[in-house]
Design a protein around this nucleic acid. Structure first.
Length: 704
DNA sequence: ATTAGGG
DNA sequence: CCCTAAT
């Protein structure tokens, strides 16, 4: 390159900037295009991902591994089952009813406990690792499937003293497995099964601490799109048990942002222009979308593939609505917090909760507090009752159960509505994890309601007493089930089809989530350029980008809409509690901060030079002029950098950090800054006269 | 999509 | 760098 010394450009002479406006449109067009292209994603990858996950799970837990492996393989079966399921509307409900001891259901508690034990334990262990965590997560799903979904046993005892109950359990064990045992003992008395969320923390010994295996249903988007049966559900059918009747909820969660996610992926993988095909902007956009996605997506509940149980009824919609309200992060967070709070309340009442488990490792810190006040949910009453708090309702029951008037319920876990997740092949395990987390969170976040299933039927009338409902009867207790359902109260947006009948209709919202490729990849790339600034160089950085796109292409067609529904992952209560934390975490994980790329001196020089000419209010032009080839430098970045440069120039050299910027440049920065601040920045036509103070050397401009 | 600022 | 609001 030849550097030509600029003559006109002295300090004094800020030249009239030539404004390249034309390019703008062109550029935009390009970019836009890029973005669109990026949208293409490969869903097919899901399967592979699932496979990977499974492997991981295998590795992590030996016992479960086998099961996990099958997930993909099971896909067909799963499909079949689903279909069957459709035919049998009641199944879902049935799932929930499990009797412990005697029921013929596969889920007998005793057996479950035993079998789960091992599984659960492993599960918990695996949690420690991130990787493992994921695995475990899935495993948990598997387990649930095997079991038929579910969850864990809930024990219902009708004792007067909660203490007894609790003591038993606690004594039993902190560990999940142990707790199970405890449960077993108790089971003799009675149990309720609850579908639930899983806890990640196995260790928390609380009474309720339970880790519930969750079921995760993953469907490849491609399959969906094609509509073919290709769906690959990750479930294990291996368990002969009743599980088969999986109750999947048909709730579909749709993620609108798919595109974005895809685009993101695309960027990384493909190449349009530069290494990062999608511009930063795109990234941002994506991020935004991501942030908003849940909300948007969730609402779409579409078809119901299955007859949905009451479970589904509530649909995610309500949640959706809430979330909708939160557009911006702050609001969102608030909402989430609120939700969380609610959740906690709920759980607390139940007494189930333990603190730690986080869904994500990060979340750990939260523990639900106990003793919250009552919840508005209908379920609250019940839960309350569980604790023994609300006596009035339960009181009558005493007659049935000997000692107490209270019916005590110990709910190990709740089952969460099925989630449908779509992820691009390129997604990393981490992203998948996050995706799932988000999906789960979104569901939870929106506000769940508790549904009561008695003998497979949903008990809707909240006003009836347990006694009236028959819940106080031993016999019925066996067939009592709890489920988390979307909070109907909140609101069901009409998003899906309005038609859905409550029970059968399924609102499924699709949750399509695509996780972006690993951020990691991109990071490496860009840095290469030493001097991005000057226009000519294009190249450096960008080379990588392209290419990968092809795999994804297929997907596009598929519409997310169809999607599937979702299995219900069960998370433990803790998980629920955790959710809030996750959110905090979430952002970081999902969005991921761009890798930091300190401006090199050459970049600074280019920036300064451009600003000298263009002024400080035209960052887009600055970007175009000096950083057009540096995709990782957005005009916002340039503006920010300028801001920092100005600041840097004003502070003592000792206070400056990072790669030292030549004083000469800093002087120019100050000069230009003051100049443009006086000149209002955009005097396009002519440069104003002077001002300047410093200008030592005219900047050099590289010329081709 | 940009710009301007706060965080 | 990120995030938002305002353009």
């Amino acid at each position: 390159m030849v550097f030509k010394k600029r003559q006109d450009h002295g300090f004094n002479g800020f030249r009239l900037p030539t404004i390249p406006r034309a390019p703008r449109s062109v550029r935009r067009g390009l970019r836009k295009k890029t973005v669109e292209d990026t949208q293409i994603c490969a869903f097919e990858l899901l399967a592979s991902i699932a496979g990977k996950l499974l492997h991981e799970s295998e590795s992590s837990a030996s016992s479960n591994a086998s099961e996990g492996i099958d997930l993909l393989a099971c896909g067909k079966d799963a499909v079949k089952q689903e279909r069957e399921f459709e035919d049998k509307p009641f199944k879902a409900e049935w799932l929930y009813q499990r009797n412990c001891g005697d029921s013929s259901f596969a889920f007998e508690m005793a057996s479950q406990n035993i079998s789960h034990k091992s599984t659960l334990k492993e599960f918990s262990h695996s949690e420690s690792d991130d990787v493992l965590e994921r695995t475990s997560f899935i495993k948990s799903f598997d387990c649930s499937q095997k079991t038929g979904g579910d969850a864990k046993s809930v024990i219902c005892k009708s004792k007067t003293d909660s203490e007894n109950y609790s003591s038993k359990v606690e004594g039993g064990s902190p560990q999940f497995g142990e707790s199970c045992d405890a449960n077993v003992n108790i089971e003799a008395e009675r149990r309720l099964e609850v579908v639930g969320l899983k806890n990640e923390d196995a260790n928390k010994p609380n009474i309720c601490s339970s880790k519930v295996p969750t079921e995760l249903f993953l469907e490849s988007s491609a399959a969906i799109n094609s509509d073919s049966n290709v769906k690959v559900p990750l479930r294990q059918d291996s368990v002969p048990n009743a599980c088969s009747p999986r109750h999947r909820n048909d709730i579909k969660l749709g993620c609108r942002d798919d595109d974005e996610n895809f685009s993101r992926c695309f960027k990384r993988s493909t190449k349009l222009k530069a290494f990062r095909p999608p511009t930063h902007i795109a990234d941002r956009r994506i991020r935004k979308l991501l942030t908003s996605k849940y909300w948007k997506v969730a609402p779409k509940l579409k078809d119901c593939e299955f007859p949905r149980s009451a479970f589904v009824e509530g649909g995610l919609k309500p949640l959706y609505r809430k979330r909708k309200t939160c557009h911006d992060r702050q609001n969102r967070q608030k909402c989430q917090r609120d939700i969380l709070f609610k959740r906690r309340k709920l759980f607390d009442q139940i007494s189930v909760v333990t603190s730690d488990g986080g869904f994500s490792s990060e979340s750990v810190s939260n523990s639900p507090e106990k003793g919250m006040t009552e919840d508005k949910n209908d379920s609250a009453a019940i839960l309350h009752g569980a604790n023994g708090v609300s006596s009035s309702v339960l009181g009558h029951q005493a007659s049935f159960h000997s000692k107490d008037s209270h019916v005590k319920f110990s709910i190990k876990s709740f089952r969460v509505p099925e989630l449908f997740i779509e992820v691009p092949e390129t997604a990393t395990v981490g992203s998948l994890k996050r995706t799932i987390m988000e999906a789960v969170t979104s569901i939870l976040g929106s506000g769940l309601d508790v549904g009561i299933l008695l003998q497979g039927k949903k008990v809707r009338d909240d006003n009836r007493t347990l006694m009236q409902t028959g819940i106080s009867c031993k016999d019925n207790l066996d067939s009592l089930g709890f489920m988390l359902e979307p909070n109907t109260v909140q609101t069901p947006p009409p998003m899906c089809s309005s038609d859905l009948p409550p029970l059968l209709s399924c609102d499924s919202s699709q949750l399509l989530t695509r996780s972006p490729e690993n951020p990691v990849l991109d990071s490496g790339i860009s840095d290469a350029l030493p001097d991005p600034p000057l226009t000519n160089s294009s190249n450096h950085v960008d080379s990588n980008h392209d290419t990968v796109s092809s795999p994804t292409d297929m997907n596009d067609k598929t519409t997310p809409d169809t999607k599937a529904i979702v299995a219900v992952p069960a998370m433990s209560m803790e998980a629920l509690a955790v959710v809030p934390l996750n959110q905090k975490t979430r952002r970081s994980e999902l969005v991921q901060r761009r890798t930091r790329r300190p401006f090199s001196v050459s970049e600074v020089e280019a920036l300064v030079h451009a600003v000298e000419e263009l002024g400080t209010g035209r960052w887009r032009d600055v970007k175009l002029r000096a950083f057009e080839n540096a995709d990782h430098r957005t005009y916002v970045d340039l503006k920010d950098k300028w801001k920092t440069l100005v600041h840097t120039a004003k502070i003592a050299p000792q206070q400056r950090r990072g790669e030292p910027v030549p004083q000469e440049l800093l002087d120019r920065v100050l000069a230009a800054h003051s100049y443009w601040s006086q000149h209002q920045a955009k005097p396009q036509g002519k440069h104003q006269a002077g001002t300047p103070k410093i200008m030592e050397a005219p900047a050099e401009v590289p010329v081709e």
